[in-house]
Computed example of a mutant assay.
Amino acid sequence: MNWGKWIIVSFVLFAAFIATLVTVCVRQDVSLVSKDYYQEELKFQDQIMRLENTESLRVKPVITVNQQGVEISYPELSSITHGELMLFCPANAHHDRKVVVPAASERLVVIPAQELSAGMYKARFTWSMRGKDYYIEETLSL
């Protein structure tokens, strides 16, 4: 076999490799953190204001994991008018949880461990209090 044939064979093998690589990449499941990611980006200035409001607080909420589950403890929990905890599982969108935190007189909210699958979660807690919105984010491992 001469050089010309080997060059043609190498180009054909390279093209087959690229075609296989493209096929594998196209079939890969890409799960975003949020379904409406682009709409959330448009509201980013509101998010910056929430973060600034949270930084101005003397005492911030604490999100922890223990044997009972995920706990939110906050001394001023009773003055919250609306709260929402989003638990995002980056590995699997089916494990995401949304919990509405009621305006309560208690200082502690618990999400039972039985309702959550093991893995890493991003806990995003947003709440309204005294006419302002607040936001805190923690990475949790169950």
Rank of each mutant, 00 (worst) to 15 (best):
Y38H: 10
V26Q: 08
H94M: 08
V62L: 13
L32C: 11
V109P: 00
L42E: 05
L32N: 14
L108G: 11
V110T: 11
L108Q: 13
S79K: 06
C25D: 05
T64Y: 00
N92E: 14
S78D: 14
H95T: 06
K60N: 11
L57E: 12
V70G: 00
V59T: 15
V33I: 05
A93Q: 09
V26P: 07
R107D: 14
N92P: 03
H95D: 14
T64S: 02
P90H: 04
G69Y: 02
F44T: 02
A104L: 11
A103P: 13
E84V: 12
A93P: 14
L87Q: 05
Q47H: 10
Q39G: 15
V100H: 12
A91G: 11
L85K: 01
Y38D: 15
D96I: 03
R107W: 02
R50T: 12
M49L: 08
P102E: 13
P61D: 10
A93E: 12
Y37V: 09
R107Y: 04
H82T: 10
C89V: 04
D29W: 02
N53L: 07
F88L: 14
P90F: 02
P61R: 03
S56T: 06
L42H: 06
K35I: 08
T81D: 08
E52C: 06
D36R: 08
R27V: 03
P90E: 06
I72G: 00
L77T: 00
V101I: 13
A93G: 12
L51K: 13
V70P: 00
V26I: 11
A91R: 07
V70D: 00
R107V: 10
M49P: 05
R107I: 04
V30T: 13
Q47M: 04
D36Q: 10
V100C: 06
Q45M: 07
E76V: 02
A103T: 14
T54L: 09
S79Q: 09
E41W: 03
P90Q: 07
P90Y: 02
I72C: 01
V33C: 10
A103Q: 14
F44P: 00
D46S: 13
V65S: 00
K60Q: 13
P90K: 04
E40I: 01
P90V: 03
D46A: 08
D96C: 04
D29C: 07
Y38E: 14
E76Q: 12
I80Q: 06
L87D: 01
G69N: 07
F88W: 05
S34P: 06
F88E: 12
